[in-house]
């Protein structure tokens, strides 16, 4: 579904992705783990078209999207739940969802109801300013907003960051639920143990290069990774 070949990206003259390869097959949950500053966010932003690439290619469902503007990629079915949630704090919860459906004229009531069924608390707070939500609720809103664009591939950038363990469980539960609905997931996580446990395959990124990849169950067993990322 998604194929990334020899991708390079830089901030100014400093290259931070050094030609990396990664692929995601239809209806998989793939996780991307790596330490601070490894380039995870940069990679997701490059896939969404909000970070310039300096080399390589990104192919989505057979189509080269490397030079496509961000809105065209959303239209093709790539949505992102960005790092730090990035909700529109001054707007209401419902407006945030409607804007998620921007390319579909704001989305339908049924689509909003689907999101509210997934996250009942959002329904309760739908008329309130999104900036007043708790961290966990904002994360749900960010996921709901991304779903409103009817994605086939959902990119999630550290959705568990800063959440209490109960909420982390809930977020991972939602991700599995989305997979069952036929949405393909690329999940970035620092919480490597949880991410590997919930995903089908995994990639490990270190300073802009993919160093390991394989079935998540194999990666969990890899002694070197256990030491570096699982703290064991």
């Amino acid at each position: 579904m998604l194929e990334i070949r020899d991708l390079r990206s830089a901030y100014g003259r400093i290259e931070v992705l050094h030609g990396l390869d990664l692929d995601v097959q239809r209806n998989e949950i793939v996780c991307l783990i790596g330490g601070n500053g490894a380039g995870k966010t940069t990679l997701l932003r490059a896939i969404s078209g909000v970070q310039p690439v300096t080399g390589g290619s990104i192919t989505f469902e057979g189509q080269d999207i490397t030079g496509l503007p961000a809105e065209k990629r959303v239209a093709l079915g790539i949505a992102q739940v960005p790092e730090g949630r990035q909700i529109f704090g001054g707007l209401t919860v419902e407006d945030n969802l409607n804007l998620g459906g921007w390319l579909n004229g704001g989305g339908t009531q049924k689509e909003r109801d689907d999101i509210y069924a997934l996250f009942p608390i959002l329904h309760e707070k739908r008329a309130l300013q999104a900036g007043g939500l708790s961290g966990g609720q904002q994360q749900m809103l960010a996921i709901g907003r991304a779903l409103m664009s009817r994605p086939r591939l959902l990119l999630l950038d550290e959705p568990s960051m800063g959440l209490a363990p109960v909420l982390v469980e809930q977020v991972f539960g939602v991700i599995e639920n989305l997979q069952q609905r036929g949405i393909t997931i690329l999940l970035v996580e620092q919480n490597a143990a949880a991410a590997l446990a919930k995903s089908n395959r995994g990639f490990v990124i270190e300073t802009g290069d993919i160093t390991h990849s394989g079935a998540s169950s194999d990666l969990i067993g890899d002694p070197k990774l256990r030491e570096a990322y699982l703290g064991q």
Binding site: E71, V74, F88, L99, W102
Partner: peptide
Amino acid sequence: TLLGRAILATAANRLAARLVGIP
């Protein structure tokens, strides 16, 4: 209007606006 909301969203958070497909 949704357009008006999109103007506010663009003002508040350009990155997020681009990620939801607002040009």
